[in-house]
Design a protein around this nucleic acid. Structure first.
Lengths: 352, 352
DNA sequence: ATTAAGGTCTTAATTGATTAAGGAGGCAGG
DNA sequence: CCTGCCTCCTTAATCAATTAAGACCTTAAT
């Protein structure tokens, strides 16, 4: 019951290892009769087929794409946006017949061996904070890399949306409806677990590039409309969950004067804000407007949101990595659009 | 710019390859000075670090777990139950510092090379139909395997719930409330894309073992309560989506006499049935009771459902595969429980 | 009969590392 | 001075395959 290799079979049959290899991988190179006997002996010995690792080594292809998420996987898959992206990527991988190796980013510490030891042909990096050690590790592997959403790495393809523009689009929507008392709830700005109010300095210091840009878009649109951003209550979350959104909603809606429009970072958060509004008996959109982001969980709730092509981004990432070398570096920005549903309307008249 | 290996560095420095290997993997075996020079030259040559494939071959460990879903990945991740399971598994993998290699099951045909060539230490198989060729391929690899949900493979650990009991529990709940006019909407019985009514013969011939068992539980409970199962309208779906559930709901609710209780296979389907009820202006639970399954998307909608420990199952699967050999075969059944929420109530009095 | 062409199998190089065992040199203790 | 023990490095086996090139034999064409 020891290890069975090609050689074991070859010895049994008194032929060379090469012949057995051919019998498996190139049947026409071997007589039908011998091939039959090879298979017979293989079966008898319980041979598991040519060892994929050895094969990979010899062929120089791993047959897998490495995938790196910033978050714990358990958390990433709770986010409909991530799931959408993942579906796109998975489809591309499927079409190419390669696997998707999901790499863990160990919790707090910087143990990055999984990245160093990953048997993959290329990496797809999604939403890593600036300067995350795993990114260096990935770049050190000298394999093709594409980055999705953040951070932009000069010299490698980047896929995402124009975050400042998208943020501004969301903000401008409520501003144009006449809102002046804004509130913001955002997740994924920093990596430090902070939950609560953030001043402008902290907002600008966000370590996640995409969210930093999105927020800058909010601010730009607000200031363009004459709103003093420093006065806009800004609640930061560390988890993207409906419950977190509700918490932020309660915090924001307890302010005096109460915001008439709340911008959120994700649809899931927006749903939580809607919950908070419901808790307080506030009419949406009559007394409060809420805007989500991603159009990932917005439809059923009638949420106004920014739609981004998550699946397309995933599919394109896969294509770039699987189509060989000519993936030229630079940012590829995908379209986004404002989807107006039933969660936004002009502010009540008495609110100006 | 050719390939840089340990040997390249060794040659440059006039030392042996082994020394360079030690410099990377066992710093204490080499003088600090030499190690410094090794790193320097490695840097200079753009060495990407010890080749993981070669390393894997030599060490005999792949550092990854293979994961096989029956469905297209794009589809699997639309299912909250699958996501929950996956979270559990991912957490276990993360703790062990191994990756998760998601393998594509090519669409229609039986191209199973991805399974044959997967560089993994073990396989986790989830919800494959009876006799799926990929399963044979997996077993042929002679690696540790655990099967989740289906199909049971003698000689390998199996994780899941007691499906017939869980199905019976769901059915008995509405039967005990007094319902006699049942309707059923199920997905994932067959692999053939069929959508529409199914007679008992077809129901029993389902190729997915778990769903077959669950359905048998429904039937057993119904007959126990004196309901003629052959008369219970049974609508089969091929996709687990809210839209599919709505379609089934409309079909079932158009029957005369109209069912007063609808059992569904998944929470997502149940949500769709609720949509259909809303379309028809039916009061739930006043005029119609609906039961979901999995407690994966039921909470917000106030859905009565069967809760199963998805994450625990995933975590346990990971543990079994990563803890080495002593995973003894046999079925491990996880607990399930009935969660009664606001979607079930006694039938309206005039309905008997 | 000679040569060419196939068909079938073998030889041997190659893929890129890890690691047990051993050798050389330096230093301290007896 | 000899011995033993380190420290640092080398030798060489090993992991399990793939594949170009060549050897050998048979058959068919010229």
């Amino acid at each position: 019951m020891a290890k069975v290799t090609l050689q074991t079979i070859a010895d049994r049959l008194g032929v060379s290892r090469a012949t057995v290899s051919y019998a498996f991988s190139r049947p026409d190179q071997v007589s039908a009769e011998l091939r039959r006997r090879v298979m017979e002996v293989a079966d008898e010995l319980g041979y598991a087929g040519p060892n994929p690792t050895a094969r990979s080594l010899r062929l120089g292809r791993a047959g897998a794409l490495g995938l790196l998420f910033s978050e714990t996987l358990a958390y990433a898959f709770a986010d409909p946006y991530a799931v959408g992206f993942f579906q796109g990527l998975a489809t591309a991988a499927e079409d190419a017949g390669v696997g998707l190796l999901i790499l863990p980013l160990p919790h707090g510490d910087k143990r990055t061996e999984p990245v160093r030891n990953a048997v993959v042909d290329a990496f797809c990096v999604v939403s890593l904070p600036d300067g995350h050690p795993a990114l260096d590790e990935v770049l050190g592997r000298k394999l093709p890399v594409v980055v999705v959403d953040e951070p932009y790495v000069p010299g490698h393809p980047f896929l995402g949306i124009d975050e400042p523009a998208a943020g501004a689009l969301a903000a401008r929507h409520v501003l144009e409806l006449g809102h002046r008392r804004l509130g913001v709830a955002m997740v994924g700005l920093h990596d430090d677990g902070h939950i609560g109010w953030s001043d402008v300095a902290r907002q600008r210091a966000a370590t996640f590039e995409a969210m930093r840009g999105r927020r800058a878009g909010y601010q730009a649109a607000a200031e363009e409309a004459g709103v003093d951003w420093a006065r806009v209550p800004f609640y930061e979350l560390s988890r993207n969950s409906r419950e977190a959104g509700r918490q932020a909603g309660h915090a924001l809606l307890a302010r005096h004067p109460r915001p008439t429009a709340i911008l959120t970072n994700t649809d899931v958060l927006a749903l939580g804000v809607l919950d908070a509004a419901a808790d307080l008996g506030l009419d949406v959109p009559g007394e409060l407007s809420v805007v989500g982001f991603s159009d990932s969980a917005a439809q059923d709730a009638g949420l106004t949101t920014i739609r981004q092509a998550k699946q397309e981004i995933g599919a394109e990432a896969g294509r770039l990595l699987l189509a060989g070398p000519p993936a030229r570096p630079g940012r590829v920005l995908f379209p986004h659009e404002l989807i107006v549903r039933a969660s936004t309307a002009p502010p009540p008249p008495e609110q100006r």
